[in-house]
Design a protein around this nucleic acid. Structure first.
Lengths: 213, 213
DNA sequence: AATTCTGCCTAACGTTCGTTAGATGGCAAG
DNA sequence: CTTGCCATCTAACGAACGTTAGGCAGAATT
């Protein structure tokens, strides 16, 4: 805590060299975890990719588990933030379809922009040691709850049929969106186009427009 | 090859003890790979779970990589077979919606029934060593092609709108279905119910029935 | 100028890894 | 009863693993 007489403005300068190294380590570790899984990446490989020696990682992180927890949480947190921010930027009276498409677009855009962190989530979470999963669960649940609220709101605004099972809808929707991490290539049409196509497919379905009874 | 004078009926008795052990090893290995990833599972752990010692695995498999390739291929192959079989059992004049729902049901049912093998696919393939991925690619591509043909046929029969991007549809659909491996619990409603809900959501979409212009 | 702190390094620990070679007991064929 | 294969075991190999302890140079503080 700062002494009473110091300027209380900010503690900004406390990051510098260490903070940059930390970020670099997280970035390369996220990429490696995505490519080879949790157990498939050694601390020596992470250190080497970040221009360090293995032992030095312990200056920045308590353990391999602590490192991966930070990557997992960061991935979810960033996407959660992007979705919340995009939705709250909508006019208060936006219709349900717009709400839905905005959330889908924000999820996809941040998911694919931070693909190393978010892929690590999709690929690594399920096979990480149990303490890692336990420590990372709260952040995931919070994001699920965000989508449950979002779908409920869209339904209230008439964009989702009344008989839809919202939990099933959430699982289908997020499953479909997250799977794009496995095949998306920016060259073959951008995120914008993908988001538009997916939002359309998910909202209108595969059936032809009339959808005769 | 049997000598000319032996009864040519069948070569059935050539499997016995060894074949049973092989299957047991594959089963426990699939479960372990699903739970801990490729690098997270040691041959000693697999052997112990199958009631063997590590060295004995080499009597049945050439290497750890060969073992996992077999598991990956088996998972895809079984689902592929189930879908082809279910579709070909339909009357030749079945409508597109029936075709679609049948394929979705067959995929989900076999996916979740053989969940250790299929989960190993979803979770392990992306982070397996490159030789493993290369050797397992053909089987995956064949299944993708199966769905491309299936969706094209459904579109020809009028169950999918003419403007739909079939590649995007396939990726969305399979992504959504496969994601169910991560959360499905048989207690909370069976596979049948899930297949019906998912087929409905994917075909009709989230939008209310009229889907006003 | 002297001192403290920061960020990283070297070296080593005990353990576990995939894999191999050779031995061994049981079961089946002669 | 003997022979030989079949399925598994034991023991060991070098390499790599996560983690720790202690050292060391340069920057920051006094």
């Amino acid at each position: 805590m700062a002494s009473p007489e110091t300027i209380p403005v900010s503690d900004a300068p406390l990051d510098s060299r260490a903070e940059a190294t930390r970020r670099r380590v997280l970035d390369v570790a996220a990429r490696l975890f995505r490519e080879r899984g949790y157990a498939g990446v050694s601390l020596r490989a992470i250190a080497a990719a970040a221009g360090l020696k293995a032992g030095s990682l312990y200056y920045h992180f308590d353990s391999k588990e602590a490192l991966v927890v930070e990557i997992l949480d960061e991935g979810i947190r960033a996407v959660h933030e992007a979705v919340e921010q995009a939705v709250s930027a909508l006019p208060a009276d936006a219709d349900g379809a717009t709400l839905l498409e905005t959330a889908i677009r924000a999820h996809l855009e941040s998911l694919l922009r931070l693909s190393d962190y978010t892929s690590a989530n999709v690929r690594v979470f399920g096979q990480a040691p149990e303490p890692v999963r336990r420590r990372s669960l709260a952040v995931r649940r919070a994001y699920d709850a965000c989508w449950d609220a979002l779908l409920a709101e869209a339904q209230a605004r008439g964009a989702i049929r009344a008989d839809a099972d919202l939990r099933a809808a959430r699982l289908l929707l997020l499953g479909a969106l997250n799977a794009s991490l496995e095949w998306f290539e920016p060259r073959r049409g951008g995120v914008e186009a993908l988001a538009a196509r997916y939002a359309d497919l998910l909202w209108h379905g595969l059936a032809p427009r009339p959808a005769a009874a």
